[in-house]
Design a protein around this nucleic acid. Structure first.
Length: 882
DNA sequence: GCTGCCACTTAGCAAAGGCAGA
DNA sequence: TCTGCCTTTGCTAAGTGGCAGC
């Protein structure tokens, strides 16, 4: 089997590419004289229209219809921004790749497939499904019935009604809502429950599990502790009686066709929290070497930049350019003297230094001050951090209005550095139920609008000025609405699991379709499925140049005979996607066809395909299916598959966790979730190595003690004479010197502490001589160590016995193993971000079931926040399968 | 049928918090 | 108890995809 079938087998090289720097000229413009043509400020080359008729000499392609009846061949035009490959100066990476000319005339016939490649239409060639062992879900199928397949969505009629933006009530939220204890006739729990049905093995309770004593099988040494911990966590979390446990409160008789667009019946909240008004610090910036006085409004913007000095943002020419443009404007508006016209003459370091000082001060505040800050935060959380949805208390997520700042766009975002203005209450619309008291707007202000839209989950919204996009205040991740949404997402992915073999057969057949549009759709789907690519919607010219599958361009794809595909592009967040994989021969042929001359840099690879068309097709294959479901499905499937393969049956908890993280990592790699290697990574690794060496040293000493106690064991137990690896004589000598030095330091501290105590008790202090005597003991020990090194005999403590030493040896071995495991985990994890896939793509029920099955405490894999977010998933039993 | 708007999910980074070792 | 490092959380940017309106 070729590894083309397995997303995991994809070879990948990852890298991160970010902005390059161009100097900013005095007038605030970017000097491009030395840069390549890749600057975001330049126009992207408009793609040339490709010839309509494409002739392919390969027999399959000969009679492709040139004008798809289903898809009018109108070449789409993209924003006219010239886009050059971001990795122009990284040519080494591509040097060995097949040049675009490989896509020209090929002597290969369709039968010249690589070894093991079958006809793409055959079953054996159906990807993943056929190759991976797909275990049918053990559930009773209700998921399909309930999740996404069973309901027909009734179109929502938004119940919009505007009201006066004046606040009409001071009544505190809790007081008002507390009278509304009974759930409304159509509560979320009910309406959502119609889609979220009970699966017998899904809702078996943890309580039953907790009382199950059958798990008294042999445990690792650390496990009794863990068991207690599990119990403790379970108990704590069970004790928090959850009135929002919608997943337990499902009614089989609920009407499946019920309108699921209505999200709530009543919604009460306290509005949003605005950032405090700006308080000027009075620290002056320098202009042309001289301190200048700034109006508070100007000082605020200067401070935004000063706070970012020496960061990548402040070094980024686009950021500088955009900041300076806005800064100049605001400085002029406030008649700053002298007029600020040159970025190069601006010196923000004094403000930066002031912030550093403030940071230091903040570090050194008293306990009481810290507590006061904490209390203040708690009070705000109490006021704004909760709301009442259908009478039930729920957490609000981000109730703070985003403070003014400089927009920190990622990658080569053309607007990065622009001034993000302070949001006024007059821009903020609140969404709450008609019966809810309207929160008071800040003094002297009023709200933009008050709406009562029960089809929306947001509590507040406003428009930001930089990208003209909407911002929202939503419920927290652990809320019922978010939980139900998560549940639905994973149920759709599970539904895909049942359909995926058919869908794959379908798109593999479509790869040879006569219509170009269908071929492109099938090829794109193949890539989305195999490489977990994002859909790739079209983007505007005022956004960073990043792509997904449907927006891949000519220059992102390179082919290498016989069937190797290289992909290299910037994906979401300008994270580089760089992978090489073997692809199905027909996919290879198709991409070669799509890349045909006169296609050139800047041209779309899939010039007839849009994400909307792709998703429309997917909807026809399975209800609720979109491109992104493949990512969720493949992530969860891969995770479960890897967990099953990697988890050691009789391993320790540490070993099982290593397996868990490895499975998680496979998913993170599949989804291309990257992170920068932390600055201190190498030093941290060295530290762990030292720790292991120290353990080995202990082991060596114990072995020698045993042999000193029982010299006869030399023959019986030859392993006692074997030297420890990595323990050179020089290292041992140095280590022992360090040990003794630390010992002396300890003795001195002990002596000082004792004297301090005696002083307080008005007793006679210890003398210097006594200290010297104590230090002499250390000297004697050091001499002894030198002797031990020479002779190889170690006497150990007076009470030392062979049995005791053996027991200690065992313990040290365990510690070495655990530390090694942690070290391997850390090294393997340095470039990969596991969190994103864990939070968004991996069905949490897989983890919950795994924890139960392998007796691993849940809190080892999910933080409190995640346990809260996934509480709906924690009730599965050990045999639950995705 | 196309386009842009809107609502929501997904994403990495940086600050805050918490914990282990000194 | 303190310090420094690692983990967790908060923030907000950047995606996806449905749908209204032209």
């Amino acid at each position: 089997m070729s590894d083309v079938e397995m997303p995991l087998a994809v070879k990948h090289e990852q890298d991160e590419t970010h902005v390059s720097s161009n100097p900013v000229t005095d007038d605030g413009n970017i000097d491009n004289s030395n840069s390549d043509s890749d600057t975001p400020l330049q126009k992207r080359k408009r793609p040339l229209a490709r010839k309509n008729v494409i002739k392919e000499e390969d027999e399959d392609d000969e009679d492709i219809e040139s004008s798809d009846s289903g898809a009018p061949f109108v070449k789409r035009t993209r924003p006219a921004v010239k886009r050059k490959s971001y990795n122009d100066d990284d040519s080494d990476n591509n040097g060995s790749y097949g040049s675009p000319s490989t896509s020209k005339k090929s002597s290969r016939s369709s039968t010249s497939l690589s070894d093991g490649q079958n006809d793409s239409s055959s079953d054996s060639d159906v990807p993943l499904a056929a190759k991976k062992k797909i275990v049918p879900a053990k559930s009773n199928g209700s998921a399909k019935k309930n999740g996404t397949n069973g309901t027909s969505r009734t179109k929502a009629v938004p119940k919009y009604k505007e009201e006066s933006s004046e606040s009409d009530s001071d009544t505190p939220l809790a007081k008002k809502t507390s009278t509304k204890k009974t759930a409304p006739a159509k509560s979320v729990a009910k309406s959502s429950a119609t889609k979220v049905k009970k699966e017998p093995d899904t809702v078996s309770s943890h309580k039953a599990k907790a009382s199950d004593n059958s798990k008294s099988k042999k445990r690792g040494k650390d496990e009794p502790d863990n068991k207690d911990k599990v119990k403790k966590v379970k108990k704590e979390e069970e004790e928090e009686e959850d009135p929002n446990a919608w997943w337990l409160n499902q009614n089989d008789n609920d009407n499946e066709n019920e309108d699921d667009s209505v999200k709530w019946t009543t919604l009460h909240h306290n509005g949003v929290l605005f950032p405090p008004e700006y308080v000027p610090h009075g620290v002056k910036m320098k202009y042309d070497g001289k301190p200048i006085t700034l109006a508070p409004e100007v000082e605020e913007v200067a401070s935004f930049f000063a706070a970012l000095l020496y960061t990548e943002h402040a070094e980024n020419p686009t950021f500088q350019h955009n900041f300076f443009k806005d800064f100049k404007k605001i400085a002029k508006a406030h008649k700053t003297v002298p007029e600020i016209t040159s970025f190069a003459k601006c010196d923000f370091t004094q403000i930066y230094d002031y912030f550093q000082l403030e940071k230091e001060k903040k570090k050194n505040i008293t306990k009481e001050q810290k507590q006061a800050i904490k209390d203040e935060k708690q009070a705000l959380d109490d006021q704004y951090g909760i709301c009442y949805l259908d009478g039930r208390k729920e957490k609000v997520g981000n109730y703070r209005i985003e403070p003014p700042s400089l927009f920190r766009g990622r990658g080569k975002h053309p607007k990065t550095g622009c001034l993000k203005l302070r949001v006024q209450p007059e821009q903020v619309t609140l969404n709450l139920s008609k019966d809810a008291p309207i929160p008071k707007a800040p003094a002297g202000h009023k709200w933009a609008k008050i709406v009562h839209d029960d089809t929306k989950t947001w509590l507040a919204t406003w428009k930001e000025n930089v990208n003209d996009s909407f911002k929202y205040v939503f419920l927290a991740a652990g809320s019922s609405l978010k939980g139900q949404s998560d549940f639905k997402k994973f149920e759709t992915a599970r539904a895909l699991k049942k359909e995926v073999a058919n869908i794959r057969r379908g798109y593999m057949a479509d790869l040879k379709d006569k219509k170009m549009f269908i071929r492109q759709r099938a090829t794109a789907l193949y890539l989305i499925d195999r490489l977990a690519l994002r859909a790739g919607n079209e983007k505007g010219e005022d956004e960073a140049d990043t792509v997904g599958c449907c927006s891949l361009r000519y220059e992102h794809v390179t082919l290498e005979k016989p069937n190797i595909l290289h992909l290299d592009f910037l994906g979401k967040d300008s994270i580089r996607f760089q992978k090489t994989m073997e692809v199905d021969d027909q996919v290879f042929k198709n991409i070669r066809l799509f890349k045909r001359e006169p296609a050139q840099e800047g041209d779309d690879l899939f010039d007839r395909l849009k994400t909307s068309e792709l998703n429309k097709h997917l909807q026809s294959l399975m209800k609720g299916l979109t491109a992104k479901v493949f990512r969720t499905y493949n992530a969860s499937f891969t995770f479960q598959d890897q967990l099953q393969k990697l988890t050691p049956k009789n391993g320790t908890v540490a070993e099982k966790l290593l397996a868990y993280n490895r499975a998680n990592r496979e998913v993170a790699v599949l989804c291309n979730h990257q992170r920068a290697v932390s600055k201190g990574h190498a030093a941290q690794m060295d530290k762990i190595s030292d720790k292991i060496r120290a353990f080995k040293y202990q082991k060596m000493k114990l072995k020698r003690t045993i042999l000193t106690l029982e010299p006869k064991l030399k023959k019986k137990r030859p392993e006692l004479r074997e030297p420890e690896s990595d323990l050179e004589d020089d290292w041992i000598a140095e280590y022992e010197t360090q040990l003794m030095e630390k010992e002396r330091e300890k003795v001195r501290l002990k002596w000082e502490k004792e004297n301090q105590k005696r002083k307080e008790n008005k007793e006679k202090p210890m003398t210097e001589k006594e200290l010297k005597d104590m230090l002499k003991e250390v000297d004697a020990r050091e001499k002894e160590l030198v002797k031990e090194r020479k002779t190889g005999t170690v006497h150990g403590s007076k009470s030392a016995t062979v049995e005791k030493c053996d027991a200690q040896l065992l313990k040290v071995d365990e510690r070495i193993a655990a530390t090694r495991t942690a070290m391997v985990d850390k090294e393997e994890n340095k470039q990969t971000a596991l969190g994103t896939s864990k939070i968004n793509y991996i069905d949490p029920r897989i983890s919950a079931a795994w924890c139960q099955k392998h007796d691993v405490p849940l809190e080892k894999i999910f933080t409190k926040t995640l346990r809260d977010k996934f509480k709906w998933a924690m009730t599965v039993d050990a045999n639950w399968e995705f």
